[in-house]
Structures are given as structure tokens and as C-alpha cells.
Nucleic acid binder design. Sequence first.
DNA 1: GCTCCCTCAGAATACGATTTCTATTATAGC
DNA 2: GCTATAATAGAAATCGTATTCTGAGGGAGC
Lengths: 336, 336
Amino acid sequence: MAELKQVEIARLAGVSQATVSRVLKGDPQVNEAMRERVLAVVQELGYVPDARAQSLRSQRTRLLGLVVHRAPAALAGDPFFSTLIASIVEQSGRYDYHLCVDTARTARSQRAIYEELLRTRRVDGLILVESETHDKRIERLCREGFPFVLIGRYDPIDAVCSVDNDNIGAAFMATDYLLRTGRQRVAYIGGPAGLTVTRDRLQGYKNALEAHGIGYNPCLIGFSEFNERSAASAMAELLNHSPAPDAVLGLDDRIALGAMREAKRHGVRIPDEIAFIGFNDSPLCNYVEPSLTSVAVDIPALARKATEMLIALIEGREPHPKRQIVPARLVKRESA
Amino acid sequence: MAELKQVEIARLAGVSQATVSRVLKGDPQVNEAMRERVLAVVQELGYVPDARAQSLRSQRTRLLGLVVHRAPAALAGDPFFSTLIASIVEQSGRYDYHLCVDTARTARSQRAIYEELLRTRRVDGLILVESETHDKRIERLCREGFPFVLIGRYDPIDAVCSVDNDNIGAAFMATDYLLRTGRQRVAYIGGPAGLTVTRDRLQGYKNALEAHGIGYNPCLIGFSEFNERSAASAMAELLNHSPAPDAVLGLDDRIALGAMREAKRHGVRIPDEIAFIGFNDSPLCNYVEPSLTSVAVDIPALARKATEMLIALIEGREPHPKRQIVPARLVKRESA
DNA sequence: GCTCCCTCAGAATACGATTTCTATTATAGC
DNA sequence: GCTATAATAGAAATCGTATTCTGAGGGAGC
């Protein structure tokens, strides 16, 4: 059943294999009667071309690679990635592409992913998530001229195509909101310090302070890994200093929630004595008590734009704005 | 740089292309001096074989397909899938396989996935998640003799390889726990009615009732989609009947939490008047108030076993137990 | 009526690796 | 010293499709 090839179809339809290929590719050079004859046989036998042979011949696999720069353990349970992956799959399917997912297993294997996916030509292009401020992977991809799109930003190289959430603007908006609603000592808990997203949101936070004429105080800044425990200890640190913050902007919902729990544990009342805002507007936000105000990142839009840009690159079209920014919005709940 | 082929290596090393291939495949038939000569050139130029050509020639893509039988919207934000995907990627990487993810975009495209991934031989095998009690996809895969493993169960066909969480046992354990701790009217809110997992957990629930000599009451059973709103309305339904339940076992954490919120909204005290238990032990459980008791499903183990079985099937080894069961454990928190 | 061009389909080649087949050389055995 | 047998490497075929090259046939133009 599956050992059908174009030659078989050709034999049964009484034509050459080349003609079968032409019919399937919709080549206009083929006569109507012959086209119908071939299509009838194709339909009847349920023939489908072999993607492996097509890949070799056309030098295209129609496969996109998604490389997540995180160890699997750090990825587990993160609702951001469910949404991202589902959205990219949906979008790439529209263009007849499939998605191959890879993660950084170890530092060593991070390099290996590039060997495996890229050098082997297993995928036609890559979508990268979570870049660092100086990222060797990106430098290398540029050098090799391989099609890729970054979800995030990479300033050092102009030619890099990227789609980013408006992190600076969103952090500004959230901080501004906190300050407008009477908070005086807004703290920021970022993610790992090397990440671009950590830096960008810090920038937005600083911009808002400046707009309100408030000085930047490094004692109100913390960093955390992508887990609750780390966020809680960052929060504990902030609470130890005086003056204690009366608001916290967390890099993502899990970090904000880890911090919020720590504050609760210290007996601080939320939102009366301290406010919290997170990022991603994940399902978590609605369930916690008090419910968490969060910046909704439009993940499907990021995925859609990144996928479209990547496919454009692959197919030789130059994406017009090389850097796109997707706006975010603040979803207000009880915590702030 | 990337236009390196074996012939080029061969030319530079002064050997035939066949020899280069043999060296790279570790063929023992090749003389040591020659092997070193070839490897030196390979190292120097950083040659990596073209996966597309290998796929065609060897009839293997070294790609596994993960097909999730859910629309992207239903997948978004679900921490179960982040963990599942991360675990499968990690495990398949150990065997030099990559992962291609697909979802059911629409009913129509569900069929298309099979055309696209399977008939085109784009992947070597499939991992299916979330089966229905009578599943045409599975019947078809069996007929075609295509290697696949189900995460879940499929009773109608003995030959189906599957790895399942011990749903019956786990639901028994959770229900038994509720009954032992003095609950009298335990309710169950399943997922969509057609899913095997919904049925299995209902079975475990019934078994526990029976073990405690309690009659089965259909008024204590509800069904929900995979979102909070649907769960809340199922819960509202249960609360309308009298006697109202004093405990609820939800099919997953999001469903249990949706139900819990509805109960709160009705002013019922938790866990005093009503207890809640969910499934998956997702990060959510720790954050809500009261924290949610949940059955921890060992997703990495499911992923690991499924991946190993699938690779065995692909490589022609018969997996010894065709059906594996992974035990679950109850993580007790405040809600029950 | 002849040439020219156009349309269309078959033959042949290419994609880059793996593997079978074949040939060469060296070694052993007598 | 001659044949039989390994050991080893090159030549050639193969995987299934896409595409270029080639040629056959028909219609238009003079």
C-alpha cells in the first residue's frame, strides 16, 4: 500500500513518470485529458508523494525547526510553550510546513542541535526563542546565511529578522500603572540576567521611573530562575532591605507568583501593602488569590509573524520590516 | 560551506566516495590508515552528511511524529503538553531522533495529518495522545502497519502498543482517600465524554465506591471541556442537585480548579464543606488557595517509555510488554 | 507545399547518500 | 611457483521525485 511510487502510477495511467510528477505539481504544460487520466489513478490508489525523495530533489524539507534555549526541566509545565508551539504548528500548517521541536539539553548539545538540524539540512529554517544579549548561536547562523527568525531581539546585528513582544513598552505600561495608582517603591524581579527579555523589561521599568521623576534604586532589583523557589528567595531578599517595596513587577507569572507567595508568608497584605504584576497572562493568574494582574503577551501573534517571516526567508522573499514588535496589554485583576 | 558533499571529501582525501561513506558509518571493512585520512579531512572541513539524502537512501527520516488530538486553542496554556513535549524531545534525542509535532487543526485536517506525516513517510513513527474509545485513526494505523505508540489505552485491538498512566488505579486511590477521610458524596467531573481517559478515571472512581459499599449515583457525575468555564458550569449543575457533593474529583487540574472556583462563588467552604482533587500536579496546584490536592502523573516516564517503545518498533524490535502502565501518586495539599 | 514555431510528453539526468557488485592486491597453503 | 582465499577499495546501481533536454506532431504563415 505504501510502496506506491510515481512510476507505478505512470504505468497504470499509461504515461511517463515525468508526466505524473508534472500533473501533481500542477504544471500548466500538461494536456487536460492526460491530467484527468493521471489524477483518476492517483485518486483511486490514494497515492501520496514521498516527502524524503521530494526533500532530496527539491533541496527543501518543508520542515521548520523551533529551538528553545532552555533545559527540558525548565520547560516543563510552562504554559508559555504550549501556546507557542500550538500556534506555530497551526500557522506553519497553513503553508504546508511542519514543525520540528528541539531544546537545549546540555550546553554541549546546544551546539549539537545546530549540527543536527542545520548542517544536516534537516530543516529549512529555524525559529529561536530566548536569546541572550550576546549570542554565539545567532552570530553563527548569520555567518552561515541560514534562514532563521528570532522571537526576541538581537541588536548587535541589523540583518537579524526578529519578532518581539513590546517588552520595553509593556514594562513601562505596567510600572507606570503601579506608580499612577500610588505605589512609591516599585521593585522588579527579572529572569536570568543574561537574557534579552530580562534586560528589556528592566529598561521599560527604568523608563517609567524616569517619566515619574523617581530615582532608580538597585536595591529594588532582583533576578530569578524560571521557578518558584528562586523567585521566592529573590523576594525574600527584597523584603529584607528597607524600605521594603510596595509593588513588584515580575518577569513572568510564575516568578511574580513565587514572589507573591513569599510576601504572603511574611504576612504582608496584598494588594493593600504590596501589589504584584506578572507577564504572560497565563491560566494561573485567574486561579490564585488574589488573582494576578498580568501583562498579556500575544503569543499567537508572535508565533504567526515569526512563522510567516521565516517562510518568506526560506522562499527567498525579503520580509519587509525585519523587526516586528507585537503590542501587549495589561490585564487588571486583584493583585494590583 | 554547506555545499560539502561526500564526493568533495573523497576527492580531497584521495579515496572514493564509497569509502567516505563507509568510514562515517563505522564500517569495519576499512583499513585504519585510510580511515584516519578520511576522518582528518572530515574534521577539518566540518563535513556533516545531508539528512535528506540519508533519508531517501535508508528509507528512514529519524523523525518521530507527535500527534495531539486537540485543537490548538485547547492546547494553549496547558502545562501538560509543555512537559510532555520537552520530555519526548529529551528522550528521542538520546537515540538520535528528532521530534515533529502536529495537532488536530480541524476535523478535516486531522485526516490530513495522516496523509501528511505518515503516507508521505515524513516520519518514521507516531506517538498519539488522547485517544477516543473508538478511534478510527488507530484502526487505520494498524491496518497500514505503521509504527505507532499510544499514550493512553486502546482495548479493541490487542496489537496496539501503549503506555498509560494508571488512570483506574489513580482515580481509585483519590476517591478512596476522599471516602476514608469522611466524605460521603464524592462527585466526578470528567473531560469530554468520548475520551478513554474520561472513562478510565470514572471506572476507578466507581471501583472505589464499590469497595466502600457505596452505590453509584449518576447525579454526581459531570463532564467538561478542557477549560475553566465549562468546568464551572458542570460544577454549578452538581451544586443544583441535592444532596450536593461534599467532594469532587476532577479529570485534570484546570477542571478541578474551575469547579473549585464555582464552589467558592457559591460560598461553600473548602475543604470543610467540600473537598477537591485534580490530576497532573501542575504548577497551578501550589498557587491556588486553598492549594489543590492532585494526582501526580509521571509525564516524563510516560514520554520516556513511549519514545523507547516507538523506537523499538521502528527498528524492528518487538517491545516486550506491549502495554505499559506508569504508576501515579497522590500529592496531598489543603483542598482535600 | 514548405518552414517555423508551439505544444506537449517521454527520456534522461540530478539530488547526495548507502550498498551491492566487482576488481585488485596480498597472503597462505601446497 | 601456482592457485585459493581474504581483505579492501572502487565502480555502479539505487532510493523516488523534479526538471532539463529532446523529439514528435500539428497549426500558422508565406
